[in-house]
Design a protein around this nucleic acid. Structure first.
Lengths: 123, 123
DNA sequence: GTTGACTCTCACATTAATGTCACACATCGA
DNA sequence: TCGATGTGTGACATTAATGTGAGAGTCAAC
């Protein structure tokens, strides 16, 4: 598919798709005319990238962890450097912290909203 | 407490503490000499702000939701505009999405690391 | 009482993600 | 074939969070 369709299907500005490619988060073939040509799986990939960006990970890190996230398919784990392991452990732990933070605040907002809506009902 | 101590206790650059104040996320009194003077509760507040920033919320939004997060104390809910409600609902839902995203990716990384460590054990 | 650590304000730099614009070529439909 | 729309590259702008440095006042300890 061409970049316009990918843009629509992922609700992502074309500008950003080219940027993600520059950051080596996604890849594309080229059609004879020079247009980018994406495979279907890129749709999910873009969504995942956006999710991770949204949650505060910089492209630098996303690029590193993406290969480990491609699902539990037959990854030969070749050349997994200790550095890489350390990075992954670190990011995993930071994610855990973020989940705690988000869960706590999500609940607080939810409780607040419930309280407010009761207030309204009572008035 | 003065800004240096707050900085240490929250592991936050002094520069950022002044920035958060400028963004109206925290507040301070002033000592006779002009130095900022923080109350104890600000320590937790700063940690919360940093957590939310870390999870991708901009200061603009944090400022809005902070008052609802001050715990379930006796908040008179005065003047809760419909706009505000809408913002809160929106942010709450976005947080839920983020939790899903983080949980999924956290698990994926964890599984990957387990697989790698088994690989190692087996070799 | 001088020195060093802390604080103040103000300004400028930086980085990452993103927006916007310009100009050229491609494509497709009327 | 013309014109609208899509795509390509490249450059510049912007915003938010953060770093860094200058210049001046404060304070505590020696």
């Amino acid at each position: 598919m061409k970049i316009g369709e990918l843009s629509q299907r992922t609700d992502t500005p074309v500008r950003m798709l080219r940027y993600y490619e520059e950051q080596e988060l996604i890849e594309s073939e080229r059609l004879p005319n020079g247009y980018r040509d994406y495979e279907d799986y890129v749709v999910d990939r873009v969504r995942q990238v956006r999710g991770l960006l949204d949650v505060g990970l910089p492209t630098r890190i996303i690029k590193q962890i993406l290969p480990c996230l491609d699902g539990p398919r037959a990854i030969h784990m070749p050349y997994v450097t200790p550095d890489m392991i350390a990075t992954l452990e670190h990011e995993r732990d930071r994610m855990a912290e973020k989940i705690v933070c988000l869960t706590k605040n999500h609940r607080a907002i939810d409780e607040y909203l419930n309280a407010v809506s009761h207030e309204i009902r009572a008035s």
